[in-house]
């Protein structure tokens, strides 16, 4: 369960959300829409503690976002941006990066597990040895999704993750992210993605408003 309660979000001296509330049940698939610059991406970022709230509260699985809980909340969620940062030289290192952190020590996946996951996301196993600089935006998005899945994360904040994908790759990503155990809060302009979601939320007049599909 994710609850945004009366949140106030100011970015660059502009109030993007003003007392907005949204409740998301576990396993829900939500897509957020709104005009450019209305605060869609900022909503996703503030849930991970990347942007400060000017008011209200956010709780994820009964943990309210505070300095004491921010690390625990970040460990539950995956944030996938339009141009994900992989943060390493090659793809294998990118997938293994979180397992070098204390929080995930000892849970390192095998090459077989990585290859299997890459296959599900329509990526060839040989991509593991490619430099991150040489792969496309769409491949980076799928690598970032694979990395989150390797961490067994079940809450995904996805910002336009199919914008750079061909139909087959998009279908593969949707198959992974629309599994029943995954809670998905997303931003997308793709009609297929929007139709697959349970709920559509519009950002209108700094509020989160349920739209009728």
């Amino acid at each position: 369960m994710i609850v945004f309660k009366n949140i106030v979000l100011n970015v660059h001296q502009q109030t993007l959300l003003d007392g907005a509330t949204l409740r998301i049940s576990g396993g829900d698939k939500i897509v957020v829409r709104g005009r450019s610059g209305c605060g869609k991406s900022s909503l996703l970022k503030c849930a991970g503690g990347a942007l400060p709230l000017a008011g209200g509260s956010i709780s994820i699985n009964d943990l309210t976002l505070t300095p004491a809980t921010v690390a625990a909340i970040r460990s539950k969620i995956a944030f996938i941006g339009q141009e994900p940062m992989l943060g390493t030289e090659n793809v294998r290192d990118a997938l293994l990066l979180p397992f070098h952190f204390k929080a995930h020590h000892g849970n390192q996946p095998t090459d077989e597990r990585m290859a299997q996951l890459l296959d599900h996301l329509h990526l060839p196993a040989r991509i593991l040895d490619q430099p991150c600089k040489r792969i496309s935006g769409g491949e980076k998005q799928r690598i970032a999704i694979a990395r989150a899945l390797l961490l067994n994360k079940t809450i995904f904040f996805a910002d336009e993750v199919t914008s750079a994908l061909d139909p087959e790759s998009k279908a593969a990503v949707m198959t992974e992210l629309f599994r029943p155990e995954i809670t998905l809060l997303s931003i997308s302009h793709d009609s297929e993605w929007v139709n697959a979601c349970d709920r559509v939320i519009e950002i209108t007049k700094a509020q989160l408003v349920e739209a009728i599909q």
Partner: peptide, 11 residues
């Protein structure tokens, strides 16, 4: 990139 590290569980 820095926020990505934090989101991946880095201290």
């Amino acid at each position: 990139e820095f926020m990505t590290y934090l989101m991946l569980g880095a201290t």
